[in-house]
Amino acid sequence: MPAAIPASPTVDRVMADARAGAFATRSIKKDAKVAGLLLAVSMIDLTTLEGKDSPEKVRSLCRKALRPFDADEAVLGFRVPPVAAVCVYPSMVGAARELLDGTGVRVASVATGFPSGQYPIEIRLEDVRDAVRDGADEIDMVINRGAFLAGRHDEVADEIRRVAEACGVAHLKVILETGELETYDNIRRASDIAIACIRDGDFIKTSTGKVSPAATMPVTLVMLEAIRDELLRSGRRIGMKPAGGIRTSKQALHYLVMVKETLGDGWLTPTMFRFGASSLLNDLLRQLVKEKTGRYAAWHDFAEA
């Protein structure tokens, strides 16, 4: 018998917006800023999810993931850490595996008919098994938003449980696609459903990056609070991944402040918090260069993935 899904509290939209807005007023400077930037680098799921992706594009992304800034030692005086993971389509998992095996950088694959999820459940499950078989360490699934919005929450929960089972040892991240869920109450409900159906150390994630709006501070806050409430209720530890729309260092630092003040230091680690992003990485590097050299760098100083 699966664990019961707890009742969800209602979310006060105005207060969630105000609380999230307050995190964006903190000023983080000097050593704390450098530490925050480096932490943010190590939390990135460096992502490419395009129809035109090729194995060589993915290999290039993997090289960037392993060594984000090739002039780091000359310019900064230290090595920039690798990112947390590379996130690709299932057909590209093999290409990523070749370069990342044994490096500590994990291979994440979207699956379950990403980004729409509008496929029969058997096909979605097969998609997951395929990706795991090819060597994915982490699976980013999409929930069935049609069923959720139609009120068939048990069906959504059942599907998440089946996907979690299909993942085996691979970690699971459940994408709610908050841009399609209309209200904060729905986002909270979907978070609670997902949290109840996944395992310790699995993640909930805001967005596919294909729908606008993607990750926002208030939406992430609502999800972080759902994670916090589960921690207080059962002691289970669920990870969080905002994805899409986080492009600047300033935004990333604001998210870290929000995580710290909602869940504490225990979540300021790549095993519990990730950024789904691609262009964010080079902005973090630019700010690191600015902090260390006092000079503003150009975009072309950093390799594109």
């Binding site: 006092g294 000079r295 503003y296 760098a297 150009a298 975009w299 100083d301």
Partner: peptide, 8 residues
């Protein structure tokens, strides 16, 4: 000074 050193 920052006009001069800004690489962009």
């Amino acid at each position: 000074e920052h006009f001069a050193t800004h690489r962009e």
